[in-house]
Amino acid sequence: MSSTNNSTAAQKPRTRFQRIWDSDVFFSFRRSPVTIVAALVTFILILAALLAPWIAPYDPFNPASLNLMDGFTPPNSESMMGNYFVLGSDHQGRDVLSTILYGSRISLFVGFLATLFAMAMGISLGLLAGYRGGTTDAIIMRIADIQLSFPAILIALLIFGIARGIIPPSKQEGMAVWVLIVAIGLANWAQFARTVRGATMVERQKDYVSAAKLIGVHPLRILVRHVLPNVMAPVLVIATIGLALAIIEEATLSFLGVGVPPTQPSLGTLIRIGQQFLFSGEWWILFFPAITLVLLALAVNLLGDWLRDALNPRLR
């Protein structure tokens, strides 16, 4: 079967925007309502988190504005003090909506940075292993394999434990977010490395690499300019799914009580707090942060799933 677009070679080159709009990836995006909704939800949640200090009705972390008399107000009602809470308030009288806005800020911050960290580390080690082969490859991939067989949560817990042992207690609270980022990042690099390495091994056999070697292009330049752009498609997919994973991992760690400190709660911490009140009927303290977390993870996962199918047309 031949392709039907041989004639395009005779046409004028298209602008970048036209190419993107017309590309198969974007075409499948326009045709999938679920994906459009997912993208929209992701966008709104990220925007809301970014704008939290300006759009949140209360500042939940300013002790001066807190009043215990506001505590346990159900959603959509006024407290005894006459304050109105859309999604209710928690045991300390903090507005649940505001804590969610600030909480997703921390969740997303940790998620993004941890994914970036894992990506940078995974891509460089994967490129190196795939291109060099031999012993370098064997060592890097063996480590990745071992690590991949342990759940990320365990690795992250371990790193967290080590950090607790090394960092003096006085600084632990301030460093907690960064420890979390490193722990989750280190737990997730292997997936990137494995994918990039596999793709690199395929690409380096291709003759466009031979053609560059032939004229004496430096190996590093070949890796960065030739190979890297060609292995980015699967990386993008993993990064998207990895973001969802990192957000969930952060929430899990915080839920287990080893994540961010309660003074700076992420969505996971909020759920941990809310769990205490679930059995006594104050369901909203748990429910709304939980729904936000699931919505965020689901939307990002849906995007990743769509991206995987769109970039790999064989799977349809």
């Binding site: 969802a244 969930i248 929430a251 899990t252 839920f255 287990l256 996971g268 759920i271 769990q275 679930l278 748990l286 939980a290 977390l293 699931v294 993870a297 689901l298 996962n301 849906l302 799933d305």
Partner: peptide, 13 residues
């Protein structure tokens, strides 16, 4: 996909 997006602790709760 919903299953992958639900953290284990939330499923438990």
């Amino acid at each position: 996909l919903v299953g992958v997006s639900l953290p284990t602790f939330l499923i438990g709760i």
